[in-house]
């Protein structure tokens, strides 16, 4: 076990340095890059806290869609297996619906790390029936 600060706490410290001290001290195109770097540190801070649980949930959702509960493939393989399936002819409306529901949950998980709040917009007004 590593000593404190944790990865998340260190990344938060890096984000604070970039945003509060470096950004106000620089000019020009570098500003944009530093702003992006600060945001990446925030993303990684959330990732350090949230990823283990999200990965476990993603694997279980993918296994559910693929229909093999005791599948011991890792996450990347499971994801590739679903891609192969969706790219093939071997897909019916049920699998499409199950994939859609599972992928939406998986993507909401990714957004909770990459861009919290992005999924509050629901497109209701612009969806044609």
């Amino acid at each position: 076990m590593q000593d404190r600060p944790t990865a998340a706490e260190l990344l938060e410290a890096i984000a604070e340095l970039l945003e509060k001290q470096v950004l106000p001290a620089i000019q020009g195109p570098l500003q944009h890059q530093v702003r992006v770097a600060g945001n990446l540190a925030r993303i990684l801070e959330r990732e350090a806290r949230l990823l283990p649980e999200l990965d476990a949930s993603e694997a279980s959702l993918l296994r559910g869609v693929l229909g093999e509960e005791d599948d011991d493939r890792d996450l990347a393989d499971l994801s590739r297996a679903l891609v192969r399936k969706l790219d093939s002819e071997d897909v019916d409306a049920v699998l499409e619906r199950k994939s859609h529901a599972a992928l939406l949950e998986i993507v909401r998980g990714k957004l909770s790390i990459d861009k919290p709040g992005y999924d509050t917009y629901d497109f209701a007004e612009e969806l044609d029936a």
Binding site: R108, K110, D114, K115, Y118
Partner: peptide, 8 residues
């Protein structure tokens, strides 16, 4: 790390 936005 913006790919998830487009996926959503």
């Amino acid at each position: 790390r913006r790919i998830a936005e487009m996926e959503y």
